[in-house]
Amino acid sequence: MAETVRFELVSPEKLLLALDAEMVVVPGEAGDFGVLPGHSPLISTIRNGIIEVTVNGAVTERIFVAGGFAEVANDKLTVLAEEAVPVKQLDRAKLEAALNDAREDAEDAKDDHARARAAARVEKYTAMLEAAA
């Protein structure tokens, strides 16, 4: 059995990250789960949250993802995320501005569709702010 898990983070625009890790903690829809070598095959949806990558006993990467999918198979973890930002790069001031924007949009929304989209944005930025704290 392999000692490490192959972790790949891909967004539609590019392959963001590919490395071997001892453990990866993924914020699954039904609760966080850690992926270690030998994990059983799994497909899960992801909520807004932080992925933590552990290499050599220390957390080396903390990445914020805004929803997506995770697939575990044969000691390989693939995360499909539309948006992923390293936690270090989250900027509180910008996020607060974006959150206020989104809140205003949610109030001004004319139809259900626009309201749902704005609400999703509010949720996303709130989670981002929490992550940045």
């Binding site: 699954g28 829809e29 039904a30 789960f33 059983s40 095959p41 799994l42 497909i43 899960s44 949806t45 999918f69 198979a73 044969n74 390989k76």
Partner: peptide, 22 residues
């Protein structure tokens, strides 16, 4: 589809929810 070496996928929360999002 990757070869699972005899295993089958677990789905969280369940197939339908994932498919509906996917």
């Amino acid at each position: 589809a990757p070869d699972l070496q005899g295993g089958i996928y677990e789905f969280e929360p369940d197939e339908e929810t994932i498919l509906n999002q996917l």
